[in-house]
Simulated scan of single mutants.
Amino acid sequence: MAVTIKEVAKRANVAPSTVSRVIANSSRISEKTKERVREAMTELGYHPNYNARSLANKSTKTIGIVMPNSAKVSFQNPFFPEVIRGISMKAYQSGYGLYLSTGHTEEEILEEVKQMVFGGRVDGIVLLYSRVNDQVMPFLIEQKFPFVLIGRPYQVDESLVTYVNNDNFKAAKLVTEYLLLLGHEKIGFIGGNLDFVVTIDHMNGYEQALKNANITVNESYKVYHDELKEGGQDAVIELMSNEHPPTALIVADDIMTFGVIRMLEDMNMKVPHDMSIVSFNNVMISELSSPPMTTVDIHIYDLGFKATELLMHQLEDPTIGVEHVIIPHKLVKRQTCKLDHGASRG
């Protein structure tokens, strides 16, 4: 026979209504009481019937995760599994499941989001990207549907959007300044897709650092590709075809950097002896590559965890105001950078 809420309440020495609030993860209940009730649930083998609760509360206890493209493509980049790991941990702590988007094109993604919202499939959404001319974010704002953006809103009033982000402009400026301090002046920039705001912020930070150093921005030193290994390989071919190729590279993503290093090896160029490289994200591959990558740790897990925490704030209290959180970044120095030969002589 199934265990009832009344039995759990009796074991935890609380009212049945308190058990219900604990199941809903209400902020009105203290963590101490929640722990006692959850212990009683575990001891008695009680499992909440979320389907029944959904009908009563119009709640699905599910969070939608919207990726920039299909899972097949996104999961080739370690950023997405790691950010989803952070999302899933906070969702689990709050008693929520996950619903993952699978659309390939912008139109398919928007249609899927509409199904999530109008079909009552999720209580809220975490948007894993910010795109130029995006259609999803304006739709969610128009519908007044709870969502949190991982990234910076673009062409949208920030006062309307709760978001979690890194200071990507500052991070790109930092790594450019680091290469300048090592004596490099011919610094190439391998950005991700220009449709994404993070790429624009990286590019602007790179250009600002060069301008501050009175170095003219060389347009032929800037290339943009999808953040995959193949994108890094194609970028190197473009940059090394310059009459005076760069001596250092800033690469948007560690998985791209892996492709960059492999292609440079095919060209008989050694990193960092012939080319210094700084990357972003600090995923596991960055430490395991040969040589280990100098990269910017953007704390991907924390981005996902904090975004979900802010979404929980909205779901628990729909009147809560917009929140903005900047997750700090850190330059992790490893073995892909060295002094420029010319600078070391002069």
Score class of each variant (00 low, 15 high):
residue 230 E to W: 02
residue 231 G to E: 10
residue 299 H to L: 12
residue 304 G to E: 00
residue 311 L to E: 08
residue 246 P to V: 07
residue 243 E to K: 15
residue 251 V to C: 10
residue 295 T to E: 02
residue 329 H to C: 10
residue 300 I to W: 08
residue 300 I to E: 05
residue 283 V to L: 09
residue 248 A to D: 00
residue 322 V to F: 10
residue 342 G to D: 12
residue 249 L to G: 04
residue 318 P to Q: 09
residue 240 M to I: 12
residue 333 K to Y: 10
residue 316 E to W: 13
residue 237 I to H: 14
residue 324 H to P: 01
residue 264 L to H: 01
residue 330 K to H: 13
residue 237 I to T: 14
residue 304 G to Q: 03
residue 332 V to R: 07
residue 292 P to T: 08
residue 248 A to E: 00
residue 256 M to E: 02
residue 300 I to N: 03
residue 332 V to H: 06
residue 319 T to E: 14
residue 249 L to D: 05
residue 294 T to E: 03
residue 342 G to N: 12
residue 272 P to Y: 03
residue 263 M to A: 07
residue 288 L to A: 12
residue 234 D to T: 15
residue 230 E to Q: 14
residue 288 L to M: 14
residue 333 K to L: 15
residue 293 M to A: 07
residue 259 G to P: 02
residue 248 A to G: 02
residue 274 D to N: 11
residue 262 R to T: 06
residue 305 F to W: 12
residue 306 K to M: 13
residue 240 M to N: 10
residue 324 H to L: 05
residue 302 D to Y: 08
residue 332 V to Y: 02
residue 301 Y to P: 06
residue 302 D to G: 02
residue 326 I to T: 13
residue 327 I to A: 05
residue 261 I to R: 06
residue 230 E to K: 14
residue 329 H to V: 15
residue 290 S to F: 14
residue 271 V to T: 11
residue 264 L to E: 03
residue 265 E to N: 13
residue 287 E to R: 15
residue 297 D to R: 03
residue 292 P to V: 07
residue 263 M to I: 05
residue 299 H to P: 09
residue 282 N to E: 07
residue 282 N to M: 04
residue 235 A to S: 14
residue 266 D to T: 12
residue 281 N to K: 02
residue 309 E to D: 10
residue 320 I to G: 11
residue 243 E to T: 15
residue 304 G to C: 06
residue 267 M to I: 01
residue 332 V to F: 07
residue 245 P to I: 03
residue 235 A to I: 11
residue 278 V to R: 00
residue 241 S to M: 10
residue 325 V to E: 01
residue 274 D to I: 04
residue 306 K to C: 06
residue 275 M to C: 13
residue 253 D to Y: 02
residue 333 K to D: 09
residue 307 A to N: 00
residue 271 V to E: 00
residue 290 S to D: 14
residue 321 G to D: 11
residue 245 P to Y: 04
residue 297 D to W: 07
residue 293 M to H: 05
residue 326 I to P: 00
residue 241 S to K: 13
residue 266 D to W: 09
residue 339 L to K: 13
residue 276 S to H: 01
residue 310 L to E: 06
residue 295 T to P: 08
residue 302 D to N: 12
residue 282 N to H: 08
residue 312 M to P: 02
residue 332 V to C: 09
residue 283 V to W: 00
residue 271 V to K: 01
residue 335 Q to A: 14
residue 312 M to V: 08
residue 244 H to L: 12
residue 334 R to D: 05
residue 313 H to N: 14
residue 326 I to N: 07
residue 301 Y to N: 10
residue 338 K to Q: 15
residue 270 K to H: 14
residue 281 N to L: 04
residue 308 T to I: 06
residue 232 G to R: 05
residue 287 E to M: 14
residue 253 D to N: 06
residue 257 T to W: 00
residue 291 P to M: 05
residue 337 C to F: 04
residue 293 M to S: 04
residue 329 H to G: 04
residue 242 N to S: 14
residue 316 E to N: 15
residue 299 H to V: 09
